[in-house]
C-alpha cells in the first residue's frame, strides 16, 4: 500500500529525456499542449505530426506503450461524451453507415478525441520522465508562486501517509464485518473520514512545530540553485517548436 500511486507515475530509466531539467521539461510540455490546442481541427496532418513527435519522445524515454494506454483511462468519460456528440449535435447532417449524424458533432468528437489524447499523453510523458520532487522544484523555477509549490509539496509528501491511515481504518472496519453497499450505510465511512480529517489537521499542527523548531519563519527557503545546462532549453523546446510549426502551418493553410 505504501508508496503506491505517486510513485507509480514515474517510469525508471535513463536517457536524454530524463536528463533534461524539470522546469525545461514542464515548459516544453505546456508549450506543446498549447500548440495542439491551437491547431485547427481540419488539419489532420498537423495532429499526425504532433502525434509522431509525442510517440518519438515516449519511445526515446522508453515508456512502455501499455503504461501510456493504462493511464489514458482518465479520458473515458470524455470519450463517451464525444461519442454522443454526433447523435445530439446540431446543424446539417450526413449519412454514415445509415446513421444520420451531425457534421458539427462529428467534428466536435474528433476535436475532443484528438486534442485530449495528445494533451493527456504529453502530460503523462512529462510525469513519467520526471521525479515528483523535481517537478515541484521545476515549477518553483518557472516562477509559480512559492505558496502553491510549498502546499503542493506538503500535499504530495503526506498523500501516502494519509492514504496509509485511510487504508488501515478501512481494514479495521472491514475486519469487523463492515461492507457497505448503499448510500445510507456510509455513516461509519464518513466517521472514519472525519477522524482522518482530525488526524490530518493535527499532523499539520505538529509539522508546523517541527518546522518552527528548525527556524522556519514563514518563508520556505530556496533550495535549488542548479543552473540550467546550456543547450537544455534548445533541446527541450525543439519538441514544442515542431508542434507549433505544424500548428501555424495549419492555421495559414485553413
Amino acid at each position: 500500500m505504501r508508496a503506491t500511486h505517486v510513485h507509480a507515475l514515474y517510469v525508471h530509466g535513463t536517457g536524454r529525456v530524463r536528463a533534461l531539467e524539470a522546469h525545461v521539461k514542464v515548459a516544453a510540455m505546456v508549450a506543446f499542449v498549447l500548440a495542439v490546442v491551437a491547431t485547427p481541427r481540419e488539419a489532420f496532418w498537423a495532429f499526425g505530426i504532433q502525434a509522431v513527435l509525442l510517440i518519438g519522445a515516449a519511445a526515446a524515454a522508453r515508456i512502455p506503450a501499455g503504461f501510456l494506454l493504462r493511464r489514458l483511462v482518465v479520458l473515458i468519460p470524455f470519450v463517451l461524451f464525444a461519442l454522443f456528440l454526433p447523435l445530439f449535435g446540431g446543424g446539417p447532417r450526413t449519412q454514415v453507415f445509415g446513421f444520420a449524424l451531425s457534421v458539427e458533432g462529428l467534428w466536435g468528437a474528433w476535436t475532443i478525441l484528438a486534442k485530449a489524447t495528445l494533451g493527456v499523453t504529453a502530460s503523462i510523458v512529462m510525469a513519467a520522465t520526471t521525479e515528483v520532487p523535481d517537478i515541484l522544484l521545476g515549477l518553483d523555477r518557472l516562477r509559480v508562486p512559492r505558496l502553491i509549490t510549498a502546499i503542493a509539496g506538503f500535499m504530495i509528501r503526506y498523500l501516502d501517509v494519509t492514504l496509509g491511515e485511510m487504508h488501515r481504518m478501512r481494514i479495521a472496519m472491514m475486519s469487523r464485518g463492515y461492507n457497505p453497499r448503499w448510500i445510507w450505510q456510509n455513516r461509519a465511512l464518513a466517521n472514519s473520514a472525519g477522524a482522518l480529517f482530525i488526524r490530518s489537521y493535527e499532523r499539520g499542527e505538529r509539522v508546523y512545530q517541527a518546522m518552527a523548531a528548525r527556524g522556519y519563519q514563514g518563508q520556505m527557503p530556496v533550495l535549488s540553485r542548479e543552473l540550467t545546462r546550456p543547450g537544455s532549453w534548445l533541446q527541450a523546446l525543439a519538441f514544442p517548436a515542431f508542434a507549433w510549426m505544424a500548428a501555424v502551418a495549419a492555421i495559414i493553410a485553413t
Binding site: V132, I156, R203, R206, A213, R214, G215, P221
Partner: peptide
C-alpha cells in the same frame, strides 16, 4: 520529534536536511 513523518516534510531527504540550515 517522536514521529519522523512529522519531522520530514520536504519532498526529498536532501531538501529536508537542508531546510534547517537554509532557514539560518
Amino acid at each position: 520529534f517522536q514521529d519522523p513523518d512529522d519531522q520530514l516534510f520536504m519532498p526529498t531527504v536532501r531538501q529536508d536536511v537542508a531546510f534547517g540550515p537554509a532557514n539560518f
